[in-house]
């Protein structure tokens, strides 16, 4: 299990690197080498580290540990083919991590990031709609049952494309450089991560790489189903490249536009859900 966790960490960091490289190439820049994010995390972990004098010390450190803990847990839920309701729970708890990161330091930029993280809470609702739709169609939230259902009836991606699109938006809103990434926008320095430097930053990079790995892996398992692991990795890479295209070509939205877009996506899924229920 620990071997898979370490594999996921390094693959996740590599995926972040590929993401940056793809964005750079699309925008006509050379971009950093794809292993840059791995080197970055190592570099940050060697740097001088302290807790800011104004920070709430316990919270400042605890959110970093929580971030690592919840995404390792999420990875194991996928590995053991557990309940996607728990996965949904962990995704929501990530919100608290974002919030705690920003508020704990006392920095004004962190605070702005945290407040933006609260108002972009609309990104959680499409996921709720996704879970509801999957439960309605497959009759279970256990990942093993969902995979078995897809083995019998074909991938959910083809059965319910709007639900897959909703989850795609959810993943997109958590990517670096995404049009929805208002919480770490450059006009507020690094948003909620501004004050977490050095070792804290390295640990957060590890946690966020796990997050990227888990979200992409979950998308493939939930919407395409049980295929060999090598094929899963290839599909994750393709999914990531499609996300990179969106991130490279879309400007970052303003906070209110972000919320509007996410609410519209939720409304569309809700309409689709009602239509499915009525037809059934």
């Amino acid at each position: 299990m620990i071997d898979f966790l370490l594999f996921a960490v390094f693959t996740g960091l590599l995926l972040h690197g590929i993401h940056r490289k793809a964005i750079a190439r699309i925008q006509g820049r050379p971009g950093p080498p794809i292993w840059q994010e791995i080197l970055h995390s190592l570099k940050f972990s060697f740097k001088e580290t302290w807790i800011p004098a104004t920070a709430s010390e316990v919270l400042f450190v605890a959110v970093v540990l929580v971030a690592l803990g919840i995404w390792s847990a999420a990875l194991f839920i996928l590995l053991l083919e557990g309940s996607i309701l728990m996965l949904f729970g962990i995704y929501m708890l990530h919100k608290i991590v974002e919030h705690g990161l920003g508020l704990s330091s006392g920095s004004p930029y962190g605070k702005f990031g945290a407040i933006r993280s609260v108002i972009s809470a609309a990104s959680e609702i499409p996921l709720f709609a996704t879970i509801g739709a999957i439960y309605f169609v497959t009759g279970s939230l256990q990942l093993s049952d969902i995979i078995a259902y897809q083995a019998a009836n074909g991938p959910l991606l083809l059965l319910m494309p709007p639900v897959a699109a909703a989850m795609y938006i959810v993943i997109l809103s958590k990517m670096h450089y995404s049009p929805f990434a208002i919480i770490e926008a450059k006009e507020i320095v690094s948003g909620n991560r501004t004050e977490h430097f050095g070792v804290w930053r390295a640990a957060l990079d590890v946690a966020f790489s796990l997050k990227t790995f888990v979200l992409l892996y979950a998308f493939v398992l939930i919407f395409i189903g049980g295929i060999p692991f090598a094929a899963v990795l290839v599909l994750m890479l393709l999914l990531l490249l499609s996300l990179s295209f969106v991130c490279a070509l879309c400007p970052m939205l303003s906070p209110y536009d972000t919320v509007t877009m996410q609410s519209l996506a939720t409304a569309l899924v809700a309409v689709y859900l009602v239509a499915v229920v009525v037809i059934a």
């Binding site: 940050f44 060697f46 740097k47 004098a53 970093v64 803990g69 194991f76």
Partner: peptide, 28 residues
């Protein structure tokens, strides 16, 4: 692992980093 791994990552960094410093005020 979920309990131990976060501590491992943070403690590993704190063990090998180059730390001498005192706390400073946030970037303003």
């Amino acid at each position: 692992i979920v309990v131990a791994f976060p501590f491992f990552v943070v403690l590993l960094g704190l063990w090998w980093n180059a730390s001498e410093g005192e706390g400073d005020i946030p970037f303003i």
